[in-house]
Simulated assay, not measured.
Amino acid sequence: MFIQPWDACLDEAEWQTWIAEGHDFGPWRAKAGTPPTDGVPTSYYAAVQFTCRAHVVDAPEAKAELLRRRLAQFQPDGDHAPVAVDRPPYGRMLPGIRGPRLEATDVLAKFKYDDHKPVEHRTAVAVHLTTRGQGLDMSTARRQRRRLDRNGT
């Protein structure tokens, strides 16, 4: 992974604290008949990798539209000036913006949620996550249940 110097962590404590604050978790992954405390911690996750063909967006109005979308995402309350090609403050900044438009040509997706484990195990994990209810537990339990509903045994 390419990391610009300004994007690097400040020290090891920064990424360790980020993990410790609940951006990762360990569910109850123990074999049937084994106490959950004897299980191996794991993370359930989804990863999506796109292979894309990039197109440079350079037309002023097209770049303005990209900027409008980013502002709507990062400042949804609208606390920014209108984006217009011929008006300040953004009009004069548009020549310095290059926007990529990505055309997905292939997608690989992985959803690691122990689908190879027995239904009882996956159900118990979802119950434990819901009961604990910290960090990403609730959203993980919802995904686990949705996968159970679709995949069953």
Rank of each mutant, 00 (worst) to 15 (best):
M1T: 12
F2Y: 06
F2V: 09
I3M: 15
D7S: 11
C9V: 08
D11M: 12
E12M: 04
A13Y: 13
T17Q: 15
T17E: 14
W18D: 02
D24A: 08
F25P: 04
R29L: 11
A30E: 00
A32Q: 05
T34V: 13
T34P: 02
D38Q: 08
P41Y: 01
P41D: 02
T42M: 08
Y44L: 14
Y45E: 03
A46E: 02
A46M: 05
A47H: 07
A47M: 08
T51W: 06
V57R: 00
A59I: 05
P60Y: 00
A62Q: 11
A64C: 04
A64E: 02
L66A: 07
L67T: 01
R69I: 11
R70T: 05
A72I: 06
Q75Y: 14
P76W: 07
G78H: 08
G78D: 06
H80F: 13
H80C: 14
A81D: 14
A84V: 15
P88K: 13
P88C: 14
P89Y: 00
R92C: 09
P95T: 01
G96P: 10
I97F: 06
I97T: 04
G99V: 00
L102K: 10
L102S: 13
E103Y: 12
E103I: 13
T105H: 04
L108E: 14
A109Y: 09
F111P: 01
F111I: 06
Y113D: 12
D115V: 15
H116I: 11
H116V: 11
P118K: 12
H121M: 13
A124Q: 05
A126E: 05
V127M: 09
L129D: 02
G133N: 11
L136H: 02
L136E: 04
M138V: 15
R143I: 13
Q144W: 04
D149V: 09
G152F: 06
G152W: 07
G152V: 03
G152K: 08
